[in-house]
């Protein structure tokens, strides 16, 4: 019973493999995702707590956890918490994403 634990709780799990030490420089969009959390978790706003972010990341399921990049997991969780909190609705977000996609396509 006590061996049941989340995919993220991975200390000591087998199959880790060699450590790939090649890194990448963070892209601007990734830094912005990081900035969003810093601003939203700031006590002056307290709209997304770090533990809410983590809970959201832990609940995306093992395959998504492995497939998404680090900040893809973050933006997924941040946005889900904001919808739960009623900061915006999923409909608003969907419309905004479609609007931006059209805007960016015509700009290219």
């Amino acid at each position: 019973m006590d061996d049941h634990h989340g995919h993220h709780d991975m200390g000591g799990e087998p199959g880790g493999g060699p450590i790939d030490q090649t890194g990448h420089d963070y892209a601007l969009w990734e830094k912005r995702v990081d900035a969003l959390l810093m601003l939203l978790s700031n006590p002056s706003r307290a709209l997304v707590r770090v533990d809410e972010l983590r809970r959201g990341i832990e609940s995306i399921g093992p395959s998504a956890y492995e497939e998404l990049t680090y900040y893809e997991r973050w933006i997924t969780s941040i946005s889900n918490v904001l919808i739960e909190r009623g900061v915006y609705t999923s409909d608003e977000l969907g419309r905004k994403m479609a609007e931006i996609e059209t805007r960016e396509e015509s700009a290219r």
């Binding site: 912005r32 969003l36 933006i75 996609e101």
Partner: peptide, 16 residues
């Protein structure tokens, strides 16, 4: 083209 997640970052930021 922007990925789904990059689009989402822009949209979340602009909405906020």
């Amino acid at each position: 083209p922007l990925t789904y997640y990059q689009l989402k970052e822009i949209a979340v930021r602009e909405l906020l």
